[in-house]
């Protein structure tokens, strides 16, 4: 066995091309996913069981089945119906790119909705009661109290979800897309150097998730800074009662 570094260097531009598609998939479906997740999460915490039923079923399905099944269901499954093939929908569903975006968006929406639900339920009860006591209407409460608070709580978990999605996006290569993994497989078919190229692809994934982690750390220390803020008790107060120091 021989190890060939030069093949990595030679095909790096193609790998970066694939990296771009991977980032594009993650960014677009992440955005659509979060837009879908918000109403789902709000419905999920509703008091009415009828409103809760739909998001529950949706989340149960998308969290209970593998992402690969979901991708295949949309990409291959849609072609089974003549009605779909005749409609304008086919312009979208015949393209692997859009099928991947649809599958990833719906998948990440389910996971994010569950994260947001957890965050909403983790908001201290007193804050909602305070909002109610001030006479805020329900929509106003959601807009001013629930969502901003949930956003801060959900941030670390959402960073995790984004990294899982980045790694899940490698499944786009199974429906012929040339994302980072797909590109690596194409290069390997030509050069027959799987170790070198997959190593390079692995390092690129590692670097991207490292960058994601860094970004979320920054965002978190900025948005949740009240948690790290050291509270200063005025000197006059500690003179009255030293216990106030804590």
């Amino acid at each position: 066995m021989s190890w060939d570094w030069s093949v990595i260097l030679k095909y790096l531009p193609r790998l970066l091309e694939g990296t771009w598609l991977t980032l594009e998939l993650v960014a677009i479906s992440g955005l659509i996913g979060i837009i879908l997740a918000l109403p789902l999460a709000l419905m999920r915490v509703s008091a009415s069981p009828w409103v809760r039923a739909f998001p529950f079923a949706y989340i149960f399905f998308f969290r209970g089945t593998p992402l690969l099944v979901q991708i295949f269901l949309i990409y291959y499954g849609a072609s089974q119906f003549e009605a779909v093939k005749q409609s304008v929908l086919w312009n979208v569903l015949s393209q692997p790119y859009w099928c991947a975006i649809i599958a990833f968006s719906m998948n990440t929406a389910a996971y994010s909705a569950e994260l947001i639900r957890g965050a909403i339920q983790a908001i201290p009860r007193g804050e909602i009661e305070a909002a109610e006591a001030l006479g805020m209407s329900k929509p106003l409460q959601v807009r001013r109290i629930v969502l901003p608070r949930a956003f801060g709580i959900v941030l670390p978990a959402y960073g995790n979800e984004l990294i899982l999605m980045l790694k899940g996006s490698s499944l786009a290569s199974t429906i012929t897309l040339l994302d980072l993994t797909g590109m690596a497989r194409t290069i390997i078919a030509r050069t027959y150097t799987p170790l070198e190229i997959f190593l390079a692809a692995g390092v690129i994934y590692l670097l991207i998730s490292g960058a994601f982690i860094g970004c979320f750390r920054l965002l978190e220390s900025r948005l949740n800074r009240y948690q790290y803020y050291r509270h200063q008790v005025p000197a006059e107060l500690t003179k009255i009662d030293p216990r106030l120091q804590d």
């Binding site: 209970g64 099944v69 291959y76 499954g77 072609s79």
Partner: peptide
């Protein structure tokens, strides 16, 4: 394909 992938999904 839809029938079989849906069946697989329900088994999972």
């Amino acid at each position: 394909p839809f029938t079989f992938y849906m069946a697989a999904a329900f088994i999972y």
